[in-house]
Amino acid sequence: MTVADALLLALGAIAVGSGTLVVTSSQIVRAGLYLVISLGAMAGLYLVLGAELVAWVQVLVYVGAVVVLLLFAVMLTRAPIGPSADLDRPAWPALIVGGGVGLGLAALFVDAFRWVRYGMPAPGTTERMGAELFGNWVLPFEVLSILLLSALVGAIILSRPDIGAPKPEAAPKPAAPKPEAAPKPEAQPQPQPQPQPQPQPQPQPQPQPEAASKPAAVKQQLEKQPEPENQEDGT
């Protein structure tokens, strides 16, 4: 029983005890604060086990960000501050399954590792962790960065305020073809100046009938239309 064992036992007891309070507390805010204690004790366990970078990332990301997000959600959903009775459903199935999983895994580990002593790990350095991350595991690292980006973009899209009202989409659809029909006469007069200079440079014989036939008919129609308007205006 060394100092490391005593530290592991104490921090493990804190983590398991406050974890029990997380899943049994009848007040949501207190459950979140017990979660802080549990995650902090686990960061201490990582420190004892020699994974310093993981410990500090745990403190930064979990205790600093995730728990704050959870407490924000508690506030935004107007959860009851005091004790509330409707947080739980009947305990027996959860107790059987959860206790079975926890105690079964614990028995498995006890049987596998017994009371074997292991040498204390060397204190971790961020340099070696960085070499491991960007050497052996650089592809999962990049994939995870893309996953994090897409997850946060998805969270933003999910948070749009207009996502729950699909009904007013029926109104704009009949109005949509009208602006599509309107730009066509605007787009067709634009090739009109192009066929006129094209007969002067001769080396493009093939595009000329295609380009000239359609705009020519359009040109005639368009030229006929403004002429009576001008005549009407003139008269």
């Binding site: 983590a15 959860a79 999983v101 006890v110």
Partner: peptide, 28 residues
Amino acid sequence: MHAVIPYVTAALLFGLGVYGVLRRRNAI
């Protein structure tokens, strides 16, 4: 150090997590 201590801690915490997921009604 005895590695069985953190292993058992992890197993008990996982069991607590399973219990909480099955027991709680509030999504948070």
